[in-house]
Simulated assay, not measured.
Amino acid sequence: MKYLVMIQGNQAAHEAMTGKPSPGYPAWNEQDMQAMFSHMGALNDDLAESGELVDGNGLAEPAETRHVLAGKDGKPVITDGPYGETKEVLAGYWVLDCASLERVTEIAARAAACPVPEGTLCSPIVIRPIMEAPEA
Rank of each mutant, 00 (worst) to 15 (best):
1 M>W: 13
2 K>H: 06
2 K>N: 07
4 L>E: 13
7 I>F: 11
7 I>H: 01
8 Q>D: 05
11 Q>Y: 02
12 A>M: 06
13 A>E: 08
13 A>Y: 07
16 A>Q: 11
17 M>H: 07
20 K>T: 15
20 K>C: 05
21 P>L: 10
21 P>H: 15
24 G>D: 09
24 G>T: 06
25 Y>C: 15
27 A>P: 12
28 W>R: 15
29 N>Q: 12
31 Q>N: 07
32 D>A: 06
32 D>E: 07
33 M>D: 02
34 Q>V: 09
35 A>D: 04
36 M>C: 04
36 M>K: 01
38 S>K: 11
39 H>I: 07
39 H>M: 07
42 A>V: 00
43 L>F: 05
45 D>K: 15
47 L>P: 09
47 L>E: 14
47 L>I: 10
48 A>D: 05
48 A>Y: 05
49 E>V: 12
49 E>R: 14
50 S>L: 07
51 G>Y: 13
53 L>N: 05
53 L>A: 08
55 D>S: 11
56 G>F: 05
57 N>M: 06
57 N>C: 15
58 G>M: 06
60 A>Q: 04
61 E>W: 03
63 A>H: 00
65 T>F: 01
68 V>S: 15
68 V>W: 14
70 A>Q: 13
70 A>F: 12
71 G>S: 11
71 G>H: 11
72 K>P: 03
72 K>W: 06
74 G>N: 03
75 K>S: 07
76 P>H: 13
80 D>W: 04
81 G>S: 06
82 P>Q: 05
83 Y>N: 10
85 E>C: 10
86 T>M: 15
86 T>N: 14
90 L>Q: 12
92 G>C: 00
95 V>I: 09
96 L>I: 04
97 D>W: 00
102 E>C: 01
104 V>G: 03
105 T>C: 13
105 T>E: 10
105 T>Y: 13
108 A>L: 03
108 A>F: 08
109 A>V: 09
109 A>Q: 14
111 A>K: 00
111 A>S: 02
111 A>L: 00
112 A>G: 11
114 C>D: 06
115 P>W: 05
115 P>G: 04
117 P>W: 13
118 E>R: 11
118 E>W: 10
120 T>E: 08
121 L>F: 13
121 L>M: 10
125 I>P: 00
125 I>A: 02
125 I>Q: 01
126 V>A: 02
130 I>G: 07
130 I>M: 11
130 I>F: 12
132 E>Y: 05
132 E>Q: 14
133 A>D: 03
134 P>R: 10
135 E>Q: 12
136 A>C: 10
